[in-house]
């Protein structure tokens, strides 16, 4: 149809590459999303404590990783860290090798990038609570930790869910840049397949469909969570 030729797709080697690439993309996206949410949670929590030196530290982290392209971060982690000494001795060969593998570098970079965005999103959620809510809780005798656990986080997490969905879908798509540091994800194999077969348009179209499906599942899942957590008066609650 439309003069597209998908005969190359019957080659088991290319099927295997596409499957492996897709699994690696999903793996990298899930792992970095999990770490990013953790970084965001603890970062926003730490910010709410209002300790000057901690605030400064977190702000530095956010500025550094939110304001630099993930591609640059990956290249930095992959090539520069090992050059300036982050190396170990391989027990088998006795050679000095870089500590972080390609996958590690991509994971660290994407987690930090996503984490920095999450800190800002979660902070904005916490800060959006009306002061009166906090005062009411305090008058009911809640401790600082109790207020945080039972009132601030439950409300703030619901407020920033749409922002989190944005961050995670972006993070998912950014995994494609890991092919530059040789992480064998979907784009890495796609490039090799269209270089072998010259079916550039066909390969790109298929990869596009795979990304659309995967990211759709993600955003569908997130909207389900949003709906399940909704409470009256906020977001999707009635």
């Amino acid at each position: 149809m439309f003069g597209l030729d998908y005969s190359w797709l019957s080659d088991p080697v290319y099927q295997g590459w596409l499957l492996r690439g897709t699994l690696n993309t999903i793996g990298l996206a899930l792992a970095s999303s999990a770490v990013a949410v953790l970084i965001g949670t603890f970062g926003a929590l730490a910010l709410s404590l209002r300790i000057a030196w901690l605030d400064a530290l977190i702000e530095l982290f956010v500025e550094l990783f939110r304001n630099t392209p993930p591609l640059l971060q990956m290249l930095f982690f992959y090539f520069t860290l090992s050059t300036i000494g982050l190396r170990v001795t391989d027990p088998v060969t006795g050679l000095s090798v870089p500590l972080l593998s390609a996958f590690d570098c991509a994971l660290v970079s994407l987690s930090f990038f996503g984490g920095a965005l999450c800190i800002e999103a979660f902070r904005s959620g916490l800060e959006s609570l009306p002061r009166s809510v906090n005062e009411a809780a305090r008058s009911l005798g809640y401790s600082r930790w109790g207020r945080f656990r039972r009132i601030e986080v439950p409300i703030a997490s619901r407020i920033c869910l749409p922002a989190l969905t944005n961050i995670l879908t972006n993070l998912f798509k950014t995994t494609s840049q890991a092919s530059v540091i040789t992480v064998p994800e979907l784009m890495y194999y796609a490039g090799q397949i269209y270089n072998d077969t010259f079916r550039t348009a066909e390969v790109m179209l298929l990869v596009l469909l795979i990304y659309v499906s995967l990211v759709s599942v993600l955003s569908w899942g997130m909207s389900r969570i949003e709906r399940a957590l909704a409470f009256p008066g906020y977001g999707k609650g009635h």
Binding site: V13, S179, Y188, G191, Q192, N195, D196
Partner: peptide
């Protein structure tokens, strides 16, 4: 190198 004909 990515895309080299002999990679496969």
């Amino acid at each position: 190198i990515q895309g080299s004909y002999y990679n496969k």
